[in-house]
Design a binder for these strands. Structure first.
Lengths: 224, 224
DNA sequence: CGATAGCTTGAGAGTACTCAAAGTGGGTGG
DNA sequence: CCACCCACTTTGAGTACTCTCAAGCTATCG
């Protein structure tokens, strides 16, 4: 999951479960903190997240980290480049995954429908990453956090009457490393949003969006 | 072209010219400033840059701009998502392009080799964009500009004995919008690099890299 | 119940930004 | 062919946002 440009009426960015009628491979499970793959590993499988949340990260030599994406249900992770993984990937929660052989993407393995679905997922990924560039390069801290919460609310939020409830399985520093901020700035920005009654923080991992329109406005750069 | 993490011995990121033995479509040409496609256009063709440089951009409602990538010879541009383009694309120089039907990517059109080459290009694109995230989110102004110059030097620079010559067809504000900076900061950072004798600025569009190792060090975060 | 990791808050510093003005160079029209 | 013009670039001064460093707080786990 990337932070695409939030809209009033977004398209669902999740994709439907893929099925491999020919040879459905057994589901994989991960516990929180365990790794699915590391940067540099040869790619044997791609995975569609069935439930739970993954974290994809890259590290710089001096320890600086960038969270590349969070993998939510419906997302495909593990696209190879030159046959190897280019991020680390670990689980933030219990995660269930549907594996697909790398060959299903790269030569179809006789299942044209699956091949095409994986290709379309890769193309969607490119487009979503382009949106994310805009956010990393051009948005302020409050715009970034507002965008992040809007996208999560739309994608995996639950309804609470007029409000909306969002669970954040990741830590503040994961959010910071995803948005290109520090944990302190993320924390301060959460506090700002709370004080302006746009959100309420039920607990560290649960946010209630009290004024979705104001949040959306913030994410698009309205002064406030 | 994205700013991937520069290394002492990088792999060539350009890819070889693709050929469509079945039905080679006539080359397309663009003059500087003319558009190849706009965001929202239906995708009919993908293009491989044969010569010249393209600029791919996205705009925010309030006018903020992000340059998503520069398209250099060997690069493929125009990957569709949901069938449409997600950036604007125009030419910075005279550009020659080899078009490929969108169908060549999406169903092979009977040319498996071409289909696979386009798929691999899309996968390389995903990986390169992941590297670029790190730069947008986690690098300082001088690290960003140093990384940018290193990648260009490697990819399209020409040798000058111990030095290396790089032509920059884009404006300072293009560089700024690519790196997530302002034109003033880009200009000041060029001046810093010049004053520390790491580069010389022959003219606005021509940079000579005098101390490649120092530049590489800067790009990786060495203080100085 | 205490230890610890993660989160929040505070104070101060630094980087990059904004606004402003001067400098430069390419292109056009006289 | 030259001069002017305009767009782009550079430089300067001041500001603001985010970061750094530090300390206090909170929740979870043993």
């Amino acid at each position: 999951m990337y932070v695409t440009i939030p809209t009033e009426n977004p398209l669902p960015s999740a994709i439907s479960p893929l099925t491999s009628p020919q040879q459905q491979v057994a589901e994989t499970r991960l516990k929180p903190g365990s790794y699915l793959y590391y940067e540099g590993d040869n790619v044997e499988w791609l995975y569609q997240v069935t439930s739970g949340v993954l974290r994809l990260t890259r590290l710089l030599a001096d320890g600086r980290r960038q969270v590349i994406a969070f993998g939510y249900p419906g997302d495909i992770v593990g696209f190879p480049s030159a046959g190897v993984h280019h991020t680390d990937c670990d689980a933030l929660t219990n995660v269930r995954l549907q594996p697909f052989r790398r060959a299903a993407l790269e030569n179809g393995e006789g299942d044209l429908e699956l091949h095409n679905a994986l290709l379309q997922a890769a193309l969607r990924e490119i487009s979503a990453m382009q949106d994310h560039f805009m956010m990393l390069g051009r948005k302020s801290a409050s715009e970034k956090l507002a965008s992040f919460l809007c996208v999560l609310a739309e994608r995996v939020g639950t309804d609470l009457g007029t409000y909306r409830n969002v669970t954040l399985p990741m830590s503040r520093s994961d959010i910071a490393d995803f948005l290109g901020l520090t944990t302190e700035t993320v924390s301060r920005t959460f506090t700002q949003l709370r004080k302006s009654k746009i959100i309420a923080i039920e607990n560290i991992h649960t946010v209630i969006i009290q004024r979705p329109t104001a949040l959306l406005g913030l994410s698009l750069g309205d002064r406030g």
